[in-house]
Every structure is written in C-alpha cells, then in structure tokens.
Write a protein that binds this DNA or RNA. Structure first.
Lengths: 188, 188
DNA sequence: CACGATCTAGGACAGTTGTCCTACGAGGCG
DNA sequence: CGCCTCGTAGGACAACTGTCCTAGATCGTG
C-alpha cells in the first residue's frame, strides 16, 4: 500500500477512536488493529503518539474549515449560518449522545492532562468562535460579536455534555428551540 | 492509624486526583503516594480501583446534598437559591478554569469509557437537577420546571467547558450576568 | 534481471498498570 | 506474658504501555 494512503487510514482510525474512547484510553495497539497493521510498525509513519494526535487535530481543523465554507455557500444570511451551527446538536445528535462533542471532549481531556497539544486543540474552538463572531458582525452587532459567539459556543457545549450524560433527545430539541428564539432577537 | 481514618484519607486524595487529572489518568501509585502508603497495601482497604471510584462518587453525593441543604438555609427564596447555583461558576471559578466542572468532566469521562459506574456519577447531575426543579416549582413554573432546571444545568456546563478551555474569567462573568437577566423573567 | 527505496512484520525494551500474596509489626485483651 | 486481630510493607505477577530495532517483503525504475 502507498505510504500516504496508509498514513491517511491511520489518521482516520485514530480520529474515530480518539473521539469514541478518548485520547488516553486509545492505545497504539487499538489503532493498529483498526487499520490492520502491526503495532511496532507505526514508528515508520508516526514517531510518537503525540504525532498522531497532532495529525488528527490538523485533519479536524481542515475538515472544520471545509464545513464552515460549505455552510457559507449554502446559507446566504448570517443568521441562517448561525442557526446551522446551533442545529448541529440535532444533526449530529446520535454521535453527541454517545460520545459527546468531539471538540469539547478533546479539549477537556487535553486541558486536564496538561497536554502540550491542548493549544492546537483549542484552535478547533477558535475556528468556530471566529466564524460565529464574523456572522454576528455581519448582523450588525460588531461591538458584542465575540461575546455573542462565545454564548452560542457555550450553548453547544452545555447541550452536548448533558445530552451525553442523560441521552435525552427531547431536551436537545427544547434547547435548540430556545436558542432559535434568542437568535431571532438579533436578526436584522 | 485507624482503618476508617485511612480509608477516609484515601477517598479524599482519590477525589482530588480524579478531579485534577481524571479517573483513568490517576493510578493506584498516585493515590498511594498522596496518602503515604505502599501501593500493594491498597487491596486491604479497597478491592479494586472501581471500588475507590464508587466511594469517591458516594462522598461527592453526600457533599453535594450537604451543600444544597446549606443553600436552602442561607437563601430563603427559590430564585435566590437558583442564583446561588448559577454563581457557582464564579465561586469555584479558579478550580473550574484549571480542571473543569467536577461533575461534568467525571460524567463525560465515564460515559465515554462506557464505565459501569457512569450511572452512579449521573446521580450527581440528578441531584442538582431535582433540586433546581423544586426551586422552579416553588416559583410557580411547575409544568416546565424540569425543562428550566436542565437549562440552568446546561448553562453551567457550557460555561465550565469554555472556561476550562479558554481560561477567560470575563466570559464567565458575562454569562452569569446574562443568566441573571434570564432568571429575573421567571421571578415571582 | 538487479538495485534501491519504500513499506512491513515481529519482537525486544524498560517502564507502568491493577491485582494479589505473604510476612511482619503494633496494640488490646485474655 | 501469649494470643489474635488490625493494619502495613514489600514485592511478585501477568498484562499492557509507548518506543525502537532489525530483517525481510514489495515494487517501480535503471
């Protein structure tokens, strides 16, 4: 197999496993088994577990950027775009119920471990934060745009943690409705 | 040393370490070092790591019940009590910035691990949820009291995750203010 | 075909994990 | 005093961790 393709497979498998089980609880052996490679051979592709994490975060950053661009092309209005973000807790509802928010749980874990790459992982949040801030600025709330962006982020994280804990879809739906109402007061 | 006192010391140390580093990332050796005991000797007090976790959760449940009773005696009005809960993200602001919410991070970790004791840990959330629901019922919002209770819980978790990630105290303050405004619309 | 680069399997490695056992010491009670 | 329970130290145990090495397979290119 080509090295680049294998590397991509490793990153894909690691991404999924880190999300489902957490970073620390995922071992080289787990990733190797998922890809179908021998454990020792990993050193050829990644010189350490941290290097895999780095690649996973990089892949998530790229994926998120791509998703945000899609949202921008699909939703012409800033409030439609913000709503698109808000509804992600419904769109990805099943995954969030089972595994939590991929961004939130990774950041929480790395922050608690005092991991070197927490700064990188925080970049995932920053991506959403900056994008949301831009949408609120376009709505004419430039001076408090960052505050509003953080509020929407906090909403998503609160819903994700409780959805993950209680596995209650109705709760998620009610919170999204509440958020929709709140958003409408900021619409042009 | 008396066995009961040693047991209490172990639970205290484990409680702190589980909060600061996470359950999985805390080893018997870590707890032993914190208490000043030999690692092998732990089996005398707890027959497994899960047994320690069980005792820690039990201790947190008892502590939480005690705190809620204190709040009830200190705050005569239901809205004052809810506000007391809301402001916990400021009261424990330093800890939350460094280690996240002790209830939220434990539940997230155990849910992701598929751990047997996740049900027990969820009880910590349920304690707050039921208590908040009671306060909203006393405020005359019986039919949507649980919904409102979950909303307040979601607020606390969203703020905790972002505070832990960004370490921004001003953000916490703004969210608490926002919550105060929201609460005032539900006051008698 | 032969060569060199690329990719792989398998295992060695030192360290750590949770678990469990045995032997010892301290202290109260007969 | 001798006994017996309670608490402890120290280490054995197998399994697993991330890391690293070496020998061989595969494959495109000269």
């Amino acid at each position: 197999m080509s090295g680049a393709a294998t590397r991509e497979q490793i990153v894909d498998a690691a991404d999924r496993l880190f999300y489902h089980r957490g970073y620390e609880h995922t071992s080289f052996a787990d990733i190797a088994a998922a890809v179908g490679l021998s454990r020792g051979n990993f050193y050829y592709h990644f010189k350490s577990k941290d290097a895999i994490l780095d690649a996973v975060i990089e892949a998530r950053l790229a994926g998120t950027r791509h998703m945000l661009e899609q949202w921008e092309s699909q939703q012409p209005t800033p409030d439609g775009r913000i709503l698109q973000f808000v509804e992600i807790v419904l769109t990805n509802g099943t995954d969030i119920q089972q595994y939590g928010c991929p961004v939130g749980t990774l950041n929480t874990e790395l922050a608690k471990l005092g991991h070197t790459l927490h700064g990188q992982a925080r970049g995932l949040f920053t991506l959403f934060r900056d994008w949301l801030r831009e949408q609120f600025t376009l709505l004419g709330h430039g001076e408090q745009a960052d505050d509003l962006a953080m509020h929407v982020l906090a909403f998503s994280q609160g819903v994700a943690v409780l959805s993950h804990t209680f596995r209650d879809e109705e709760f998620v739906r009610r919170e999204v409705d509440r958020m929709r109402d709140w958003l409408s007061t900021y619409r042009k």
